[in-house]
Amino acid sequence: MIIQRISRIISNYEMIMPIFAGAVTLLFVVAIFSLPLPYYEEQLYPKTYDPTSPLNPYDRGGPPFVQIDIKEQYPENSPTAGYVTSYLTPLSWYMANTTLYLGTTIVGHPGGILDEILYNTRGLDTVVETTILFIAFAIASYLYRKG
């Protein structure tokens, strides 16, 4: 019986990865044939570039602690969004004043806009994300210590 054979293959847990990966492969092939997809022009949190700013590409304008306008989904829910435009540590402040390329290095903590999104307007995402880390860590350390 063909159903019997299929169910025997599926019930083997070694086979689950190839089956699932096969399904995803097929779906991505379908996705290739369904291209092109439309790109919605009015995006939230649009990116801006100012090549003359040392904080490029993270410069969103305005000094720290002065509210700037951020294009979020529900502005009425985040009344304080836009205060943290950027904050620089002494070293990165020095680099910002001497070179134009602070934004491309890791010491140029992109603070500002990303902090606004990660902590404030989309804070729930980050809560879930840290919980995932926490759970993964609990599993790993349980297996390691109580092993």
């Binding site: 995402d125 995932i132 993964a136 609990a138």
Partner: peptide
């Protein structure tokens, strides 16, 4: 996106 994150959390808890 929040939904997908919660789903991943369910997945990793099941593994755990």
């Amino acid at each position: 996106f929040n939904f997908t994150l919660f789903i991943s959390l369910v997945g990793i808890c099941n593994v755990g």
